[in-house]
């Protein structure tokens, strides 16, 4: 399935963009680190997709682990919670094992229902009630965002080949490209148009013009790519054209609010030019489950 031409052309276009970015970075020193990091991200994703379903599952498990570690290092934690946090890390391989086994029904409820019940029950064992409610809420938000929501990216790889024109890899490619370019579109539109701020106390650089401009550009991108990479009917494509950019924006500003609440600008220094893993993944944590469920609702028999 991977060798089907649109996916190859898609990857070739991304590489062409990167090469253009690299050439531009000879003059623009400001974007050098950012472009270099994009190379690492694109090569890692490309290699994982070439390796197939298990390659993507392993890469996404690593990404979820790094994102969860970054989150748990940033938020308030209590010394007594260390064993519970170790268990939270163990949920990463557990959740991706469910993806690897293709237990779709169990994946849907594992984190939102059973981990939601398990973690408070484990946290209560250390006997410290001061800060208990905050600790359970903080932990669950992080697990859902970094493990459950990102896991939908890998879950796309379980799509039966007959259900999508380019298989699960095509759907995942569509999700990643739209989410990534939506970030870029919103940034560029905001910079070039300006105007009134949309959420000045959370993200001082974001404007209404940037948001709406980004929604329009990303919407056009969805309408162009979805007929090639997805089996979705037009009404579903139009829903995604609006919802994907809005969800990407929501993921971006919610993570900004979390960072502002904790008094940091970037989640970490993991990715030079980008900040931390959470700074790069914020939009994807919202768009991944949404895109998956639109596909599951409108087109898939399996899901």
């Amino acid at each position: 399935m991977f060798t089907a031409s649109p996916l190859l052309i898609g990857f070739a276009s991304i590489l062409a963009l990167l090469i253009a970015g690299t050439i531009a970075s000879f003059w623009m020193a400001g974007i050098r680190a950012r472009v270099k990091t994009w190379w690492v991200i694109v090569v890692a994703l490309g290699a994982a997709m070439l390796a197939g379903r298990m390659g993507v599952i392993v890469l996404f498990a690593l990404i979820s682990f790094i994102a969860l570690r970054e989150y748990l290092s940033l938020v308030p934690t209590r010394r007594e919670d260390r064993p519970a946090l170790l268990l939270a890390y163990a949920l990463v391989p557990a959740s991706y094992l469910i993806v690897a086994l293709d237990w779709y029904g169990i994946y849907l409820v594992f984190v939102p229902v059973y981990v939601f019940l398990l973690m408070p029950a484990v946290l209560v064992l250390n006997g410290r009630t001061k800060g208990y409610l905050a600790a359970t809420g903080i932990l669950h938000w992080g697990i859902v965002i970094t493990v459950y929501n990102l896991g939908y990216g890998a879950l796309f790889m379980n799509t039966p080949p007959a259900e999508a024109p380019l298989g699960g890899a095509g759907l995942l490619f569509f999700l990643l490209v739209v989410t990534g370019l939506n970030d870029v579109f919103q940034y560029i539109a905001g910079r070039t148009i300006g105007g009134p701020k949309i959420l000045p106390s959370v993200s001082p650089n974001k404007t209404w013009a940037g948001f709406l401009g980004g929604v329009v550009l990303s919407g056009i991108l969805v309408c162009l790519l979805a007929p090639i990479f997805t089996p979705l009917p037009w009404r579903a494509i139009l829903i995604l054209a609006v919802l994907m950019p809005v969800a990407g924006f929501a993921g971006d500003v919610t993570m900004s609010a979390v960072k502002r609440d904790l008094g940091v600008k970037d989640a970490s220094k993991l990715l030079p030019g980008h900040g931390g893993a959470l700074d790069r993944l914020d939009s994807l944590t919202f768009t991944a489950p949404l895109t998956f469920h639109v596909f599951a609702f409108f087109s898939s028999v399996r899901f």
Partner: peptide, 14 residues
């Protein structure tokens, strides 16, 4: 946070 004095098992933290 990874391995405080008295702890036996390390827990990942940045």
């Amino acid at each position: 946070r990874i391995l405080p004095r008295g702890a036996r098992v390390p827990v990942p933290f940045t």
